[in-house]
Design a protein around this nucleic acid. Structure first.
Lengths: 228, 228
DNA sequence: AAGCGGCTTCCTGTATGCAGAAGCCTGCTT
DNA sequence: AAGCAGGCTTCTGCATACAGGAAGCCGCTT
């Protein structure tokens, strides 16, 4: 998430109401519970969260600033509606940013970080065998974020996480396509290989391909389920 | 500042109050009118803008989501305080993103866009001769944004602009250092050369170097003016 | 004299009230 | 019957009111 807020992890009972609402809405949008284009009525949301409109409004403003929600002046807000073109643009952007990250990480990561990453990667094997999509999604997130942090550039890591989060709903969808889970892990394997060899450029190219494969998988899914 | 947005300055009655406040604060932070670390008292800002606290709060939330302001729960907000380390991280991030952009742009730009970029670059010559920092800053922005758009990836362009905007104040400072203006243009020249040859990788490396040179120039300035 | 604790005061966070705009529905006109 | 106009409804945007936490201050204790 773009910085600026004290976000303690989601065990949130205490904390600001507007932050809790923001986190809840972020989650619902990311998981698709709130579909793209869904209208966001302030009073309705306020009732649902047992709050007044004020914290809801603040949450919506923050989400709008993050691009998850579109606010049209005096006409209310809707969950950001994304065209297939825009989704592809976002995937390409993530792919390029991830490619940058893995290149920097290859050159900068400490032995400890490298060890941690290898360990993480090894853990994904049984998950793939079991075909556990949710577990793999969670692992995948950890894997990529470990790479972000290994760049030793906190700002870049934040940006990467923020952009990645906006693609959450789509990435999860895409993982459920056919053999994508196993192929995803194979691609990770190839990336790990390049990292182990200290070849940042190679790791970068493989990461870009990895992300674009995911995008292609998603595009196929979108076109297969096209309503028209 | 040389805001490319058509946010008509103070004569603006139209539009949302919270948006006007947000734009005004963005501007003041970017130009340094509001120094980093400055406390942002809601009531005080409300009085200054002749509004109530409500739109001020909404503006602050949006700025926090964009990273320009830090909000500590129940303790008010301050203009994001950036350490030299963080500024360098931001510069590195911008450098990498710009490098990505110019590579994609080289391969994707239309002849019209290439022509426009060349024209823009040519216009910078007399500006450098005159040593007009403000004009060059404005040109520089146009030059880089033209490259963003030539990627034909709207989302990537938005991200690039957003990150770049957060460095506004520092980039302007840096341009005022010694021969930096002329060297900046020389580096643009080298980038244009690579674009003309259709060598995206070369353009990318040169762009990265260009941005890191700017960062180095800024770091020298910061250390030279270090209070301690 | 120094440290601590309670109090006071200010400021944030939330709720509610009010005005105006956007959209809709109804009824009139052609 | 279709189109338009005007009023009505609903929701947003802003202001104000209220409650609770945070920081500073003053006095008390040792």
């Amino acid at each position: 998430m773009a910085s600026g807020f004290e976000t303690e992890d989601d065990g949130d009972d205490r904390g600001l109401l507007s932050d809790r609402i923001r986190n809840a809405l972020t989650d619902e949008i990311a998981t698709g519970t709130l579909a793209a284009g869904a209208a966001l009525d302030e009073q309705q949301l306020a009732d649902r969260f047992g709050a007044s409109r004020t914290p809801v409004r603040e949450a919506l403003r923050q989400l709008a600033a993050g691009g998850l929600v579109e606010l049209r002046a005096r006409r209310g807000g809707v969950v950001a509606r994304m065209t297939p073109e825009r989704i592809m643009e976002m995937f390409e952007t993530v792919a390029e940013i991830e490619a940058v990250c893995v290149r920097l990480a290859t050159y900068r990561m400490t032995p400890l970080e490298r060890s941690h990453l290898i360990e993480l990667h090894d853990l994904s094997q049984p998950i793939v065998e079991a075909g556990d999509f949710d577990a793999y999604d969670s692992f995948n997130r950890q894997f990529h974020e470990a790479i972000y942090h290994a760049t030793h550039n906190g700002f870049l890591a934040e940006q990467a996480i923020a952009v990645r989060n906006r693609l959450n709903a789509f990435r999860r969808t895409q993982l459920r396509q056919g053999e994508r889970l196993r192929r995803s892990r194979d691609e990770h394997e190839a990336i790990m290989q390049a990292i182990a060899e200290g070849d940042g450029e190679m790791a970068s190219r493989r990461m870009r391909a990895h992300m674009l494969n995911a995008a292609t998988s998603l595009r196929r899914f979108i076109e297969a389920n096209k309503p028209t």
